[in-house]
Amino acid sequence: MITTDFVPGSPCWIDLGAPDVPAAAAFYGAVLGWDYEPMETGGEGAGDEDMEGGMFRKDGKIVAGLGKLTEEGARSAWMIYYSVADADATTRAVEQGGGTVRVAPRDLGEWGRMAQYSDPLGGQFAAWQPGSDTGIELVDEPGSLSWTELYTTDAAGAKEFYGSVFGWTYSDMALPGGGGAYSLITPAGLPEERMQGGLMEMPGEHLTLADGKPYWHPVFAVEDCDAAVAVVKERGGTLQMGPEDAEGVGRLAVCVDPAGADFVLLTPTEPPTQG
């Protein structure tokens, strides 16, 4: 389960890079019941358009960020940030493990320090060293982050790399029908009931969204997966899988928003508890 104590190596923030911010705000508002709060740009200027973005809230609590996609050639996607005690040390670990630094550690005022990376096969992720801001304010409730997931072409390599960067531990669960294993992720030093995500090996031809490269995506809890999927379709999104039942997990669907960003909707077998 994801909680808001944000121990080192736990997901603490997510944001979406979208080519059309108002359209993304409307889509996720309809699907997940989010309210969008634009950021103040500090006045008129040539750079204001590039700074377009803001925060998503659910029941008044921050659940995600939204920004305009400005990187040339990049696809619209969710970025998952993991809490770290020292972003510079994390950066060294990424480089030593064969990863790439996409955005070097930098301060964001008093709020904290961030950096963005790619794993050795190209899967993108980020780190957040908290200052006054530790991260999102609502998790494991309907309309909020409840899990994180990596699709990769090399599960063993991913486990070694992320283990060296974040200290994660893993436990493998056999997939039905002889479909391989699903590796459950737990932060360093915590029991398995604090598992926060998973990773699964897939052939590159199945990773079409990222041209065969690995990618992370968020899993959002919802009260009714089928009803939420109906809204995804009504609002111009598509389905990659589901809705279907996963034993011991719940009813889930892998979705893609109108701009091509993927995410999962999950109605858990048991109601989520607030972290």
Rank of each mutant, 00 (worst) to 15 (best):
G98L: 08
V21E: 06
A23S: 14
Y28T: 02
G112N: 06
E44V: 07
V94E: 13
G98K: 08
V101I: 09
D50W: 13
V101P: 12
K58I: 00
D119I: 06
A85D: 11
K58V: 01
R106A: 10
A18H: 02
G47E: 14
R92Y: 01
V31I: 04
A74W: 10
L69K: 05
E95M: 12
K58R: 14
G65N: 11
W111N: 06
R57A: 10
T100V: 12
L66C: 11
T100P: 03
G67Y: 01
M51I: 02
S83W: 01
G43T: 01
G42P: 01
G123I: 03
E52K: 08
T41E: 00
A89Q: 10
V101K: 14
Q96F: 10
A104V: 08
A18Y: 04
A23H: 08
A25C: 10
I62N: 09
A126H: 07
T90I: 04
Q116C: 09
A23D: 15
D20F: 04
S83D: 00
G99N: 13
Y81T: 07
R75W: 05
I80T: 13
T70N: 14
A24H: 05
A115V: 08
A126M: 11
A89R: 10
V21A: 04
V101F: 13
G17F: 00
L16H: 07
G54H: 04
T70R: 13
G112Y: 03
G53P: 07
L32C: 06
Y117P: 10
S83M: 08
Y36C: 10
D88N: 14
G60Q: 12
Y81I: 04
D20V: 05
G67F: 00
V94S: 15
G42F: 03
W78Y: 08
M114I: 14
G47A: 15
S118M: 12
V31G: 02
G67E: 02
G73K: 00
A85I: 03
G109R: 12
P105M: 02
A87N: 06
W34C: 06
Q96V: 12
Q116D: 11
E110C: 03
M39A: 13
A127H: 04
A127Q: 04
A127E: 01
V31P: 03
G60S: 09
T90C: 11
G60A: 13
A18D: 02
L32D: 03
G97K: 06
G73S: 08
P120Q: 07
P120K: 08
D20Q: 01
E110K: 11
A87E: 02
M51H: 07
F27N: 03
D35E: 14
G42S: 05
Y81E: 01
A85T: 05
L16K: 01
P22G: 04
D35S: 14
A104T: 00
E72N: 09
G45T: 03
G17D: 13
D50I: 09
T91Y: 07
R102F: 08
G99S: 15
A25E: 09
E37I: 12
Y82M: 11
G98P: 01
G17C: 03
V63S: 03
A25I: 02
A18W: 05
R57W: 02
G45Y: 07
A46Q: 12
P38M: 11
A104R: 15
M79C: 14
A74V: 00
K58C: 02
W78N: 02
Y117L: 04
E37M: 11
G67A: 09
R92E: 13
A89T: 02
D86M: 04
M39D: 06
V84P: 07
V94I: 12
T41W: 04
Y82F: 15
E110I: 11
